[in-house]
Amino acid sequence: MIKDFLKTVFLVDLLSGASLTFRKTFSKTVTMHYPDKEKWIPYERFRGLHYQAVDENNELKCVACELCARICPAGVITIRAKEDEKGVRRPALYTMDLHRCAYCGLCEEVCPEDAIKHGAGYEFAGYKREDAVMTLEDLLKNEPNETDPEKMGTVSSARLIRKDGTLKIVADGKKRYRWW
């Protein structure tokens, strides 16, 4: 009772709070400097921006069977098939309207050729609606997931590149650390 009263009079609670914040003022910050200097590399299981896989001859794996377009619950994928010069069925048009995509991973699971896959990209922001509609060329450019266990789930040093009205954050991997 008297102890509590003395605590109140001499502002013990307030002063202990203030001393805590004073000590924290000079401790190391825990911020990830995301767009400017650092970027987090996702794990292999991560379901990010899709990409189209190619085989060892640098040819598309996709045979335009349209299974992914059929199983997609949101109707993201549009495919038109064609026959190429070797007589193989290939996509003439393969677009994904990622506004509607829920990144559920059904397209990747159903694909018999392991052609459409989820990658590491997680920067979806764009200046126009068309930026989120991926054509076949865009899908070929998107990066696959990191498979090296040493690099997965780390924070890598990165650079923010502004070019042609778009922003790109490129991880260069010069410095790495685990954030947690």
């Binding site: 924290k24 003022t25 000079f26 401790s27 910050t29 825990v30 911020t31 400097h33 400017d36």
Partner: peptide, 14 residues
């Protein structure tokens, strides 16, 4: 800056 460092973040940086 003081607010940031009290909360263990760097405050305005950009």
């Amino acid at each position: 800056k003081i607010a940031g460092h009290i909360q263990q973040r760097p405050g305005p940086m950009r």
